[in-house]
Computed example of a mutant assay.
Amino acid sequence: MRLLVFGLGYDSPLWHALNPGGVTVFLEEDPEWYNIVRTESPFLRAHLVQYRTRLDHADALFESYKRFNSCLPGEAAESPVRIRRNEDCPLALHNLPPEVYENEWDMLMIDAPKGYFPEAPGRMAAIWTATAMAWSRRGEGDTDVFLHDVDRPVEKMFAEEFLCERFRVGGTGRLWYFSIPPVSRRGNTTAASGGAERPFC
């Protein structure tokens, strides 16, 4: 399968090993930690990435994202949500390595970036981008999304707004599991979603 993981860790070689013959890609924002993990596991397919967000801006981003048309799903299945080169949406990870956009991901795991001090990037953009990728899927099947640390208010708030409670199919401890259908299989997007109030749900 195609597996995209937000974050590098000591568990990264395990996820790589569990997906033989598949594509497993890791995204990490901390240069020092990136170098440590890559030195110990040079076979991992990993990219060093940058985030535009800060955890202490989470509330403002949450309250303002609907004012940006570039952050909202389109009215038709043919125009779900744009990520690549979408600089106008502050939640879009618009400058990731090309292979991230060129693959359709079967599973996304969000365990990064850091989200435990005010200046940290927080996971707001990772959650929004994972949602946009799931919405835009053209291939068969739903997109599985796993989000860690849902005991923290920002992760919980953004998960409920973008990944949506109706797509949550499981969870344990601090981990939630969502299965998100592409917008092309939802019929009328406005009717199937929360409309203007909760456009992704």
Rank of each mutant, 00 (worst) to 15 (best):
G141D: 08
R138S: 14
R186L: 15
M157A: 14
D142W: 09
N69G: 10
P113D: 05
R52Q: 12
E155P: 07
S179G: 03
D106N: 14
R52S: 14
E40C: 06
N69T: 11
G173Q: 06
D149E: 14
Y10N: 14
P98I: 00
L93W: 03
A159I: 05
A130W: 08
R38G: 03
N188D: 15
A191P: 00
R168P: 01
G9H: 10
P113F: 02
I36L: 14
S179P: 02
L48R: 13
S12G: 11
G170R: 10
M133R: 09
P31N: 08
G171M: 00
E155L: 00
G195T: 06
E140C: 00
L163H: 05
F178K: 02
M109L: 15
L108C: 04
A92S: 15
V5F: 05
N86D: 09
L61M: 12
E63D: 15
P31E: 08
A92G: 05
D151T: 10
N103M: 08
L44M: 10
E63A: 15
E155I: 04
E161C: 03
E40Y: 12
M107D: 05
R84S: 11
W128E: 03
N35M: 11
H47F: 15
E63P: 00
E99L: 05
V23C: 06
A159C: 15
P31F: 06
E102H: 10
D142L: 07
E63W: 08
D88M: 10
F43R: 11
D149W: 07
G21D: 02
F178W: 02
T189V: 14
D30S: 13
P42D: 03
W15C: 00
F68D: 08
G9M: 04
G187D: 07
Y34W: 09
C71G: 08
V169Q: 07
P97Q: 09
L27S: 07
R82S: 13
G195L: 06
F167V: 04
E29C: 12
E197N: 13
G122R: 04
E165V: 11
L8A: 01
W33G: 02
F162P: 00
Y10G: 13
D56M: 10
E119I: 07
A77F: 00
W15K: 13
R82E: 14
L8I: 04
N103S: 08
A196P: 01
T53M: 07
G187T: 09
S70Y: 04
R54S: 11
R82G: 10
A77W: 07
H148D: 11
K114F: 10
F62P: 01
E28M: 09
F62I: 00
G141W: 09
L175K: 08
A120G: 09
F117H: 15
Q50K: 14
D106L: 06
A17N: 12
M133D: 00
F178N: 02
T131N: 14
I127H: 03
A17T: 05
S41T: 12
P121I: 03
R54E: 14
M133H: 15
G9I: 07
L175D: 11
D149I: 00
E104F: 06
F158S: 02
A46F: 01
F158G: 03
N69C: 00
N35T: 13
